[in-house]
Structures are given as structure tokens and as C-alpha cells.
Design a protein around this nucleic acid. Structure first.
Lengths: 190, 190
DNA sequence: CGCTGATGCAAGCGACCACTTGCATCGGCT
DNA sequence: AGCCGATGCAAGTGGTCGCTTGCATCAGCG
């Protein structure tokens, strides 16, 4: 009874519009149109643009569960879990994620919304620390390790959206982990 | 005669405002204030916001020359040149570069301005290809190599501006290249 | 000294946008 | 059937912003 057009539809519409316009440019009118509802309805249902974003982010990234609770003896396996998660995220929602990350800098509105998904990073930190202590990874601030691991994935996602000539090939998480662990020299014993 | 406030001052002001506000939010009024001139003067001198951006970018990134014309036998040395260049760029102008890259996606105005600095990437491609053919690098699309190399640097620059808890430590280009070539396993012979 | 051209100032125009409001409509519920 | 809440529609409000304009000022140059 809530509505003929579900909230999920509106969330998807919003994320889609943000992906191609950015948050600020994403006019509530355009979001409403994309969702197939009236702009007034959108405000009656969600109150404000910020609140709509918050709900959309929450509902969308809650689904992306990262199974990281029990880091084991296998570095490669754990890193693969991480890379796979982020490459899937960037593959499906890359436009939104990057836009929001950037826009958070100057929009407290956006920043406030992003605090929730950021909690995920702490769990990643823990896993990396675990393997550093085991001696399976170079010791350095875990965020550095994280950036080195995920940076390539993320840059390809950025490039796909900026550069025409960039590869459209999706990232191969196994290759990323292998290169990360063994380096980019050919035939180094892999 | 030209003016008491130089064009360079205005360019710097614009890039500074963009770095913290983004291009769209960077109000011409705010730029003019930051430069210490009147908004009307700004338009009389530069015509439009887009043209101002173009001149600012041109003048600012022309200075960043990349010395890459003669790739040699030393992969590490050539990669170091590349990483050093980009880490310097992100260090000093990271806020602007990333913002513009992202905003280019939905603003043809910005995209048009960025075509010039993009030419640089082709020279980087050539160097990477050269070393791939020499057998010093894994063979893959050169842009992939580039992303894997520079991704970590760039992500740290992004993080510095988004995450409070991120490292403020500047990137060490030598370490980046070493890890890139040899991987993140400790003591792999290096 | 008188001209010229670049500047500052203040006001305004037109466009866009988040958000509101009043009213008619329509669907499900009792 | 009759009610009620959610919707669509259209118009509007107030704010921001790119850009313009008219006028006064001020510096350099002959």
C-alpha cells in the first residue's frame, strides 16, 4: 500500500542519476522522473534530498556483506575476499561511490551519509594487521597496504568513466592479488 | 597596465577554490574574492568561468614537465620518474586534479579543458610498452600497468582529503616502485 | 593637464534548484 | 458505498550563481 512505485525503485533511480550527474547536479526533479513518480511525492515520502540519499546508501550497501570475520592462515585468500568485494562494488556502483567520496569533501550533507559505510574499512584494517603480524605482509600502516591493493581496481573504475580509450575489461581479482603479492616482474617464480 | 593583481594570482585562487569546493560550487564571486579582485573584473579579463579554468590548467600543468623521452634499460628508474611526477602532482594539486577528473564526467565544460593534460598519458603508455617488450614487465594493456603503479599514490591522495584518520605521510616513490616490482611479501630477495 | 583603459561597486537578469502548497484524483479498506 | 491516505499536477518561494551593465575612480602616458 505504501506506493505503486517502491522505495527501492526510487533509490536505484537516485543512484543512477548521481552516477551520471553527481550529487549536487542530481536534480530532485530528474530523480523523480527517473523513478516514475512526481517530485512532490518524492519529498512527501523522503522529506529531503539528503535523507533520500541516506536511505539509498544504507539499503544499497547493506546488501554488500563482506565476510571477513575470521582471518586465517591464507593471505591470498583473505586479500582475494577484499579485492573481490571492492571490484564488485566499483563494477556496479563505481560511479556513485567515487562521486560521493569526492563530494563528501565539500558537502557535509554527503559526508554525514558516508560515515556508515566507512565502518567497513576498520574490519579491513584488522585483517591486514593480522597478516602483517603473521609475517605474511610487509609491515606498514594498514591503510597503505589497502590503498596499494585496491588502488589499481579503483583507478580502472575511474578511468572507465573518464577516458574513452580505457579498458572496459573487468578487473580479475585473482590477478590483482597475485601481482600485489609477487610484483609486476614476469616469471618471478609464481 | 595589465593589472595590479596578476593573472597567476587569479589562477591560483581559482584552483584553490576548486580544490575545496569543486568546480561547480566554485562561485566566481568566491574566486574573485580569493584573488582580491572584483567579480566584474574577473569576467572582463577572462570572459567566462570555463575560459578561466582553461587558462589556469594550461598555465599550471605546463610547468610540470615529464622527462620521459628516452626510456632506457632501467625499468625501476623509468617507473620512478613516472611515480615521482604523479605523486608530486597529487601532493600539490591533488584536490584539483581529482575533482576535475570526476567532474569531467558530467560537465563537458570541464572535459574540454582536460584534453590537453591527457596527452601526457600516451607518453607514459609508450614507456610501459617499451619495458614490456624488453621483458622487464608483465605483458598487459599498458593502462593496467599504469593504474597498478599509480593507483596506490592516487588513493592515498583521495583518502587524505576524505578520511580524517588517513595517513598524512607523503608517498615515498621509491617504495612504491619497489613494491610494485617485487610485491608485498616481506623479504622476497630485494 | 587631459585622455584612456583597467578597475571597483552595486544592482540586476535569467536560469536552476530544493522544497512547499493547494487541489483534484484514485486505489484500497471497512 | 464511503472514507482516507497516497499520489499527480501546477504554480510558486527563496536562494544561489554565471554573467552583465552603468557609473565612479584611479593609474599611467602623451
Amino acid at each position: 500500500m505504501a506506493s505503486r512505485v517502491t522505495d527501492e525503485t526510487v533509490f536505484d533511480a537516485m543512484l543512477a542519476v548521481i552516477a551520471e550527474q553527481g550529487y549536487e547536479r542530481a536534480a530532485t526533479r530528474a530523480i523523480a522522473d527517473a523513478a516514475g513518480i512526481n517530485e512532490a511525492t518524492l519529498f512527501r515520502r523522503f522529506g529531503s534530498k539528503e535523507n533520500l540519499l541516506r536511505q539509498a546508501v544504507r539499503r544499497n550497501f547493506a546488501g554488500f556483506a563482506l565476510d571477513l570475520d575470521a582471518p586465517g592462515d591464507d593471505v591470498a585468500a583473505d586479500l582475494l575476499t577484499i579485492v573481490t568485494y571492492y571490484s564488485r562494488l566499483y563494477e556496479t556502483r563505481g560511479g556513485v561511490v567515487l562521486t560521493l567520496m569526492r563530494e563528501a569533501k565539500f558537502s557535509p550533507e554527503v559526508a554525514a551519509v558516508l560515515t556508515e559505510p566507512e565502518a567497513l574499512l576498520e574490519r579491513v584494517d584488522a585483517v591486514i594487521l593480522h597478516h602483517q603480524r603473521r609475517g605474511a605482509l610487509v609491515t606498514e600502516p594498514p591503510r597503505h597496504t589497502f590503498f596499494a591493493l585496491v588502488g589499481p581496481v579503483m583507478m580502472r573504475s575511474i578511468a572507465r568513466r573518464v577516458d574513452q580509450r580505457a579498458t572496459q575489461t573487468p578487473v580479475d581479482p585473482e590477478a590483482v592479488v597475485r601481482r600485489f603479492l609477487h610484483g609486476h616482474r614476469p616469471d618471478t617464480g609464481e
